[in-house]
Design a protein around this nucleic acid. Structure first.
Lengths: 121, 121
DNA sequence: AAGGTAATTAATTAATTGCTTAATTAATAG
DNA sequence: CTATTAATTAAGCAATTAATTAATTACCTT
């Protein structure tokens, strides 16, 4: 299995999947969009309404998130419905953490600790 | 507890901690540096030797990683020794996943699945 | 102190981002 | 068919990024 977390030089477009995901996540508006979509699917317009920037600007962010495989686009009549794709996000981040943090105690432990914290207010 | 995963508007410098981490991770060379440091601490020169770009360029990447709180810098004589700080990375990524992915099945499950895959080739 | 090595800072430049407004495409409603 | 609404594409621009080479700082050796 070839690792792809760091390499920027493979894949037809010369930009790896991991690179696209990390680039997509580097923008606060885009992370915000993902958070909105985690609650429910939304149309492009509904998403744009939650930002102060122009609609085309939001559309670009959506396109970057879609290219990264983090969200999906579904045309419904004259509306475009966007929704979250969780797998790619979790796989990419987890794959990276596995590479960078000593194997054996990856994000799992942290996740458990934080989950416990949420349960006990 | 204030969430800081998306907000880019708090903190003195107007750039949040999470933003710094995600920005730092958006660069393939910087992710590569983190991977190198996961194996062992290295001097600036040893890191630079592993790249084809100039030393000052690597130095800048190191500075970005340090500002993000992902690595630490320790001057030892005329050398500067860099090493990984895991906590900030894991906390930030995990915090983000918790926000974006439906609570209850965070990265933990994925982590376990992938760990299992690694065990059984 | 003189010279050498390690690393960073400074100055510069080319390329990329992140937005804007204007134009375009597509679907629906009157 | 015309007008309206949703969304994207296109064109343009200021600001940022990522790299380079040159200069500087700091430390060690003799």
């Amino acid at each position: 299995m070839e690792d792809e977390t760091f390499d920027d030089s493979s894949e037809s477009s010369s930009v790896g999947a991991a690179q696209r995901v990390f680039h997509a996540l580097s923008s606060a508006p885009r992370r915000k969009i993902l958070a909105y979509l985690s609650a429910s699917g939304l149309t492009a317009g509904e998403i744009a309404d939650r930002f102060s920037m122009s609609k085309p600007a939001v559309s670009q962010h959506l396109s970057i998130l879609e290219t990264a495989g983090l969200i999906r686009r579904e045309k419904q009549g004259q509306f475009v419905h966007y929704s979250l794709i969780e797998n790619n996000l979790v796989n990419t981040l987890n794959g990276f953490v596995q590479e960078v943090c000593p194997v054996g105690r990856p994000i799992k432990k942290e996740s458990q600790a934080r989950a416990r914290q949420k349960e006990l207010p």
